[in-house]
Write a protein that binds this DNA or RNA. Structure first.
Lengths: 359, 359
DNA sequence: TTGTACGCGTTATCAG
DNA sequence: CTGATAACGCGTACAA
């Protein structure tokens, strides 16, 4: 662990000169530059980041925050894919990624709060899966760079990257309706467990109302994201007579659970009952039947979030340079389209072929 | 962003005193302690981590390194599960996790090398999925705390956490043999792509030899981890006449691909052909047929790795305190058992019921 | 073109 | 029990 001073000693110059060489400042003679560089190489000198951070006020670390309560969030392919997108861009830009996972409600997580205020992070990207206690509140109050992925409830949507949950849900519900389904069931989650839940539900509702179907009479059960919970919820849905001919699930894992339950009843998907999901996790494509679902552009969303953050960091830096203290108004929300992926877990209801529909 | 100095000013004491109060040093009068604490609260003071790191030589950040080449490693549930285990323990211990993903061969990744030497990390956990260029080489040479998950090839296995790939592979192969299979195929990967590949292959071999079967004549195709590549590899295996009655896959995703290919041939799993995997990824349980595979204790392995790292960091610290500069010899490798998970993707070969085997 | 000297925010070592 | 003061390693005005 050689230091600047040691390099300076060896190259017979001052530490200031070494520093200048290393930061590519002009006005250094070729000769000394070469001598310094050689000393650096010989000593295997690497700048101490803690010292640099202290001096420059920049750590080149950005924090990715994902609160979790109910479930292992790392088990959610959507989250890890977003993370991958973020990580890619950060690495490109020479930034490092610190993962921050407040276990408790964000507001109560002292650890998170301290970290956010510790000056260790140049910025934060929060993955807001939960409503009510957005993790972005903290950096927002502290006035430093942040971007949120998801919904911030009543707080407005500046600096936010979202997936168009409403449109995606509406589209897939309309698709089922178009196939001829009239008796459907829904497997959702507690709205307190997923900020996007409400949007998806209103997407469904919108499709139903467009078709003059009464959404409020649609049987609706709650799961908790997992395959098992989907199984349980489907169990209740199937107990009804007549049972629904199609089930809309708020995520793919619950859809897979629901399908298991349909099988357990001795029924076929999609011949007897159609089941659709949401998210398009990797296994959705390989499940049999391959899941009809809604794709979210998770990796791109992660990348875009990181890019937005760097724009904010950059503009903040240039503001400082010219002494402007204008509070930036924030970026307009970016909404990524979500797209219906038609595979083979949905079909017209039994006794109602596509042909008959066309008549 | 209040500083120590501001707190000191407000509490009418010196910065040294504030520091003592905050680090719970005894020998501070109750009265001043209270005054300081109040000032801290009023100012919302949070220590600056960069400054603390510089002064104490400790950052409370540990790096988790996972090299990747061929594939999106974030898409590998095994890796993210390990990461989750690591993260849990680190958070408990008040450490933060920085993710480090050298894209190039580790040796050539300047970014990784610099980070490792920057003094920004208190320790490293490397996930060694690839042979030949273990990421742990760097911290090892630099002489600072590290733990490796996986295999370090010829470098020895000190400070290593492993899954018993050999035993797991042997067990699942023996299971198929026990079901009566005699003509099997294997879908593996390039040994340069996965350090564990060789162990699993020798596990298979061992089972075959125990049953007096010639392992070298077993048809063997290579995939590249993905579902698609499993499909392609199975394609070649099925082209043989007679085709194998069972396929051993080196991971679950390829097994799922292989099953798809079997279906495409109009055959059933496991009635016509048995297919087994390795890893027990979450979707293995929900796939239909549910995958018979080998479970690895990924989360526990991650947790154990973090614990081992903290033991090393701790002992290093106490060595320093008493001036001992003994080079620690390192921990013995910890091998986690892997276990056969019997579900429903394997059965006796056609025309050979379990009954007939017992005769 | 180069060097001096100070500041960044903490911790730690001493005197007092 | 408390308070100066010196590190920690780097960046950077400012001076030379």
């Amino acid at each position: 662990m050689a230091t600047l001073k040691e390099v300076a000693l060896r190259a017979q110059v001052s530490t200031a000169t070494v520093s200048k060489v290393l930061s590519n400042t002009p006005y250094v003679s070729e000769e000394t530059r070469a001598r310094v560089l050689r000393a650096v190489a010989e000593l295997g000198y690497v700048p101490n980041l803690a010292a640099r951070a202290l001096s420059k006020g920049r750590t080149y670390i950005i924090g990715v925050v994902f609160p979790y309560n109910y479930d292992h969030l790392f088990a959610d392919p959507l989250i890890t894919t977003i993370l991958e997108g973020i990580e890619t861009v950060c690495t490109e830009q020479g930034y490092n990624v610190l993962i921050v996972t407040p276990r408790a409600p964000v507001i109560e997580s002292a650890q998170y709060q301290r970290l956010a205020q510790s000056g260790y992070l140049d910025g934060l990207i929060t993955i807001e899966t939960l409503p009510d206690t957005p993790a972005s509140t903290i950096p927002e109050q502290l006035g430093y760079p942040w971007v949120a992925l998801g919904y911030r409830s009543a707080l407005g949507n500046l600096n936010t990257i979202q997936s168009d949950d409403f449109a995606g849900a509406k589209e897939i519900a309309a698709y089922l309706i178009g196939l001829g389904h009239r008796h459907m069931g829904i497997i959702t989650v507690e709205e307190t467990d997923l900020a996007a839940a409400a949007r998806r539900m209103s997407g469904y509702r919108s499709a139903f109302e467009n078709a003059a179907l009464n959404f409020d009479q649609v049987p609706c059960e709650r799961g908790s994201f997992s395959v098992e919970s989907g199984y349980q919820a489907a169990d209740k849905l199937l107990a009804r007579t007549p049972h629904p001919t199609a089930i809309l699930c708020l995520n793919d894992r619950m859809a897979i659970g629901a399908i298991q339950r349909v099988w357990a009843a001795g029924l076929q998907v999609p011949q007897d009952i159609s089941v659709v999901g949401f998210d398009d996790i990797p296994s959705a494509a390989y499940f049999a039947p391959a899941l009809t679902t809604v794709r979210q552009h998770a990796e791109e969303m992660g990348e875009r979030a990181a890019q937005m953050l760097f724009e904010i960091i950059g503009q903040r830096a240039s503001d400082n340079r010219r002494g402007t203290t204008q509070t930036p108004s924030g970026f307009k929300p970016i909404v990524f389209p979500s797209e219906l992926v038609i595979r083979s877990s949905a079909a017209p209801p039994p006794g109602r072929s596509l042909e008959s529909l066309r008549r």
